[in-house]
Simulated scan of single mutants.
Amino acid sequence: METERERDREPRRDRDPEGRARSARPRDGLGRPLPYGAEGVARQPEGVVRTPDSTVREAQRLLDAGMPFHAHEVFEDAWKSGPADERDLWQGLAQLAVGLTHAARGNATGGARLLLRGAGRVEEYARGGAVTYGIDVTGLAAWARGLAARVTAGGGDVDASAEAPRLRVSR
């Protein structure tokens, strides 16, 4: 049987109003937790339903700001709230963003795996003429494969802002 003293030594988990575990720790631009009380980057609200166009615009803004972890959360909302037949597109884009996150954090192996997985997923989704909302699927896959190869080969530090991909073909 657990004593009160043992319970007090266990770290308490932050919970949302429904009782689900949610970390309230602030995070940096790459989504890494910071100590409580530190000034972090504002988080993306969860469960936001956006149009595909506003999803891409918001994710691009976050990628350009060097915040791929937060862009991943925007794509995650799209796959959870969008049509089931578009899930692979949004999941693939989320994997690309979190792959960039890991690469920028110095996790070359994890970053490369996610970049390659995301590249394959968005390309597979686009086969057969699926709607891509103007997203440059081919260019993104090439970008992801190139970055994955570079980080795997020990190509140096990855600056998330400088490496941010263009989600749509420039006009």
Rank of each mutant, 00 (worst) to 15 (best):
A149S: 14
G31I: 09
L140C: 09
Q91W: 02
M67Y: 00
E58H: 00
V56E: 01
R61Y: 02
V49N: 13
R113P: 02
R127L: 09
A78R: 00
W79A: 08
E76L: 07
E123V: 15
D14W: 06
H70T: 11
D136Q: 09
A97Q: 04
G154F: 14
G106I: 11
L89Q: 00
E58T: 09
R171A: 14
G106T: 11
D64G: 05
E6G: 07
G146F: 01
A97V: 13
G110V: 12
P26W: 04
A126E: 09
D8T: 02
V151E: 00
L140D: 02
T51C: 10
L115I: 05
D77A: 12
E46R: 06
R22T: 11
A84Q: 11
G139Y: 15
T55W: 05
G19R: 14
I135Q: 05
K80F: 07
R57M: 10
E10D: 08
A141F: 04
K80G: 07
V131K: 15
A84R: 15
D8I: 10
A108W: 01
W79H: 15
V56Q: 00
A153M: 14
A126H: 08
V158T: 13
R61N: 08
S23G: 08
I135H: 05
E18K: 15
P26R: 07
G31V: 13
G129V: 14
A162D: 09
L167H: 01
G37T: 13
A59R: 00
W143R: 11
G82N: 09
R13M: 09
D85F: 06
A42R: 13
Q60S: 08
E123C: 10
R145N: 04
F75P: 01
W143C: 09
F75C: 02
F75R: 00
R22Q: 07
A164D: 02
A65S: 12
E123K: 14
R12E: 03
E18W: 15
E163H: 02
A59L: 04
V98S: 02
L34D: 03
A94D: 06
P83G: 10
H72G: 03
H72P: 01
K80A: 05
E6Q: 11
P17R: 15
A160M: 13
F69H: 05
H70R: 05
E2Q: 11
G29F: 00
S81P: 06
G155K: 13
H70Y: 07
V151A: 02
G110D: 06
R15Y: 10
D159C: 11
A153W: 12
S23P: 06
R15M: 12
G47R: 06
E6W: 07
E123A: 13
P33Q: 02
P11C: 12
G120A: 12
A103Q: 05
Y133V: 08
